[in-house]
């Protein structure tokens, strides 16, 4: 068996603030295999975007990677020199950020922004890069004549497609997508996801897909990890996590989405609100909102451990006991 493309080992990231250290990512470990789609779910502030930034080694003060390693094909990204990082980013792993409106420079044509990436990494002429740019735009469903358009002349969906085209420009092995379609309408979101997966078939890249939308994640991911207050609380195949959720938080999250079909019942969501990362106690961060809280939940943090085929961090033991 080939080793995983990306191995995240015991990663912790802190934000250093005047009020103390906020641990946004706390001892997270998981793998992404080549060609696989891994979803990372959770609410705002759970650390999923911070984790994505760490993978591209983009953190700067006040964020601090305090522990752990991120191995990409065996090389630790966090220990790379500036030169190695330059070769790594976009060539091997690229990133699509949440808001395409902010990811593109408004005063430069999209063509210039695409070829900038290509020419910075490959020894090609301007003409070759331009031709490659036109080809990329065509791949994501935009007419090549749009190379000379400015971002404001494109709709939100088209801008997001341009960002995906830039991410694909150097055929990376991994694309990190941080809420790529959150700001878009469902129909546009569907079109972009369809195109993305057609491209994935051709290029064979792996995707780390970060979102709060479990339904979309369930449709596209092979594996899903659920994060809460900086920790991974459940990790398994998409089917295991969504249909046989064991962690009370995952169960709450799954039942927070009214379904389009099926019986209409009153859903309750999760009571309370996400914790302040500066005020986390000794125990499980989810305990104050948990319906299955036990005495040790307040004092001892449950470790992520193998149970059956998946990983889960919860004191509530047997699956029958947790099933709602």
């Amino acid at each position: 068996m080939t080793p995983p493309l990306l191995q995240i080992r015991n990663l912790s990231v802190d934000y250093v603030t005047d009020a103390g250290n906020a641990r946004a990512v706390n001892s997270v470990s998981f793998d992404i295999n080549a060609g696989e789609t891994v979803g990372l779910a959770g609410e705002s502030g759970c650390g999923k975007s911070t984790l994505a930034f760490a993978i591209a080694n983009l953190h700067a003060a006040p964020a601090l990677v305090s522990e752990g390693e991120i191995l990409f094909e065996g090389r630790d990204i966090l220990k790379m020199s500036k030169k190695e990082l330059r070769a790594f980013r976009w060539n091997e792993a690229s990133m699509v950020f949440q808001s395409a409106m902010n990811a593109l420079n408004p005063v430069i044509t999209i063509g210039a922004q695409i070829i900038d990436v290509i020419m910075a990494h490959k020894p090609v002429t301007h003409k070759e890069a331009w031709a490659r740019g036109e080809e990329l735009l065509q791949k994501v469903g935009i007419h090549p004549s749009r190379m000379s358009s400015y971002p404001h002349q494109l709709s939100g969906g088209m801008r997001q497609r341009v960002v995906i085209a830039i991410a694909l420009a150097l055929r990376p092995k991994l694309i990190i997508m941080d809420e790529p379609t959150t700001a878009l309408d469902v129909v546009v979101e569907r079109e972009i996801m369809d195109e993305l997966f057609a491209l994935k078939q051709d290029y064979g890249f792996a995707i780390l897909f970060i979102s709060h939308d479990l339904s979309l994640m369930g449709e596209i991911s092979d594996n899903i990890g659920v994060m809460y207050a900086g920790r991974l609380v459940e990790f398994g195949t998409s089917h295991q996590v969504l249909d046989q959720a064991l962690h009370p938080y995952t169960q709450g999250l799954v039942s927070s989405f009214p379904t389009l079909h099926g019986p209409k019942t009153r859903l309750d969501g999760i009571p309370g609100h996400p914790p302040n990362l500066l005020e986390l106690g000794q125990g499980c961060a989810f305990a104050p909102r948990c319906t299955r809280k036990m005495s040790q939940c307040d004092t001892i943090h449950p470790n992520l451990e193998q149970r059956g085929d998946k990983l889960i961090a919860c004191h509530a033991r047997s699956p029958e006991e947790v099933t709602v």
Binding site: V186, R190, F197, D213, S215, G218, E219, L260
Partner: peptide, 13 residues
Amino acid sequence: LLISAVPQAERRR
């Protein structure tokens, strides 16, 4: 079209 575009976890792509 709108309804077919709504993501549903139970459905594969």
